[in-house]
Structures are given as C-alpha cells and as structure tokens.
C-alpha cells in the first residue's frame, strides 16, 4: 500500500493574471482517502480538476499513476480512463438511459463487449442501490439517485482513483445521506479517493487526511482528529467555526 497514485510538486495555475493555485504540493498514496475543504473560491475544485487535466496548470509537476501530465502527454484520454470523476451537477448524459450512461465509455474507450459492460454496470448500479432504475432516463430520477448513477458510471470504468467535486452541494438536504453512504462504502473498500466536500461528518468518518485550502494555497493538512480538534492555523479555525456552527 505504498504505491504513489498522485504526486503534485510546486504546481501553479493562473487564469490570465489571477493566481488561482499557488505552489501546491501533495502526495497521494494508493488507497488514500483525502478530503479537501475550504471556502468557495479557494481553488479546491480547480486543484482536483487539474488531476485529470480538465484544467491545465502552468508551472510545477503533476504525476498521475506514474505519468507526468504536461503538454507532451500523447493521449490524455488514456490517463483519464483510470481517474474517475463525480461532479457537483452530476453531468449525466440526458439523452441516454441510466444503463447506457454506465456502459457507453467502457464499450467505446475500453472496448468491452456489450454483455460484459452491462453486467458490470448492473453490478455497480446494485452497489449504489438503484438497479431498478437502469432503463430510465436521468431526468426521471431525483438528484440523489442521479448522483449515485454518476458514481456508478465512474466506477464502471474500473478507475484507480476517484475524484469527487462537491458531490453533495447541489442536493436537497434529505438526499445527501444516501450519496454519502455510497461514498463511505467505497472508502471502506479501499478506493483511492480525493473528495472536495463540506461534509465534515464524512471527513471525520473516512478520511485519512484532511486538507484545508484558502486563496489558492494549502493552508493545513493532517489526520482528521488533529485537524478538527487542534487546528494549527488561524484561518482553519475561523473556517471550522463558520462551518460547524450550524
């Protein structure tokens, strides 16, 4: 369990003149479960979006599963297949059924046969507890169900790493727990996870490490017990007070 999954060294990102990420350093081992939090606009989403190169960084090094992400990457799609992502707004394909959402990329990109892909898809849909919705269209499901489908869709690619970009922020409160439950189970199965989330309960329960970001920097990093009980930085304390006070 000491293989490196993600290695980020001295990474910087700019939007025009705006310095979005400053000198980010982060190492993620295989099997690590990391929760990233911070106020909005702190660059946490941008950082994990750099990991599968939905955003391009300008300086520093990002290595994902042993491959450096830079302009010389011949085929970024190959790396993305091993890095799954779950979005805030689910981003399911509305013109495809739930099952087709799950089988499309395995069949096209991994060249899995249809029967095989559907078997895998049903397995993961069962795991997220909505196999009965397989023939429906995303628009017919509730937000929580959609997000679980999105997780299943990412799992169907059999990724080595899963990125979660605020997976519960767009959900109605009563649906948050059903998504978190699935995420907890995944964590217990040993999936390498990077989660941007404000769900501190989830962080306490499953995270190996919690990272706090503000203004494009990693301010503090540590195991959840230390992070929540004895935060070192002033900014972290303020943030925790705000988020835990209600």
């Amino acid at each position: 369990m000491s293989e490196v999954a993600i290695q980020i060294r001295g990474m910087n990102k700019f939007y025009g003149t705006f310095h979005a990420l400053k000198e980010i350093n982060l190492t993620v081992q295989k099997g690590d479960r990391i929760v990233i939090c911070g106020p909005s606009g702190s660059g946490k989403s941008t950082m994990i979006r750099c990991v599968n190169r939905l955003e391009e960084h300008q300086a520093g090094v990002i290595e994902v599963l042993g491959t450096e992400l830079n302009d010389e990457v011949g085929n970024i799609d190959v790396i993305r297949r091993d890095v799954g992502m779950v979005f805030q707004h689910f981003n399911l394909f509305p013109h495809l059924t739930v099952l087709d959402n799950c089988t499309l990329s395995p069949m096209l990109s991994r060249k899995v046969s249809q029967a095989e892909a559907e078997k895998t898809a049903m397995m993961y849909l069962e795991r997220v507890k909505i196999p009965e919705q397989a023939e429906k269209f995303p628009g017919e499901l509730s937000g929580g169900q959609q997000q679980r489908v999105a997780i299943a869709r990412a799992l169907c690619m059999k990724p080595e790493i899963l990125l979660f970009d605020e997976p519960t922020s767009a959900l109605d409160p009563e649906m948050i727990s059903e998504v978190l439950e699935v995420m907890v189970e995944l964590a217990q199965d040993g999936m390498t996870m990077l989660c941007v989330t404000h769900e501190m309960g989830f962080a306490r329960q499953v995270a190996d490490r919690v990272i706090f970001m503000d203004k494009g920097e990693i301010v503090e990093e540590g195991p959840p017990e230390d992070f929540f009980n004895s935060p070192k930085e002033e900014r972290t304390r303020t943030f925790l007070q705000q988020i835990l006070s209600h």
Binding site: R81, M85, N91, L104, L108
Partner: peptide, 18 residues
C-alpha cells in the same frame, strides 16, 4: 449544452471522436 456534458465525457476518458 451545459459545459459539464463535455467535461463528464472527458473525465470518462472518451476520445474527441466519441
């Protein structure tokens, strides 16, 4: 189309053609 559609497809590792 929402930007997320293309991003989700990219995140799944689908090629430009697909």
């Amino acid at each position: 189309l929402p930007v997320g559609q293309e991003e989700a497809a990219k995140a799944l590792g689908m090629s430009y053609f697909h």
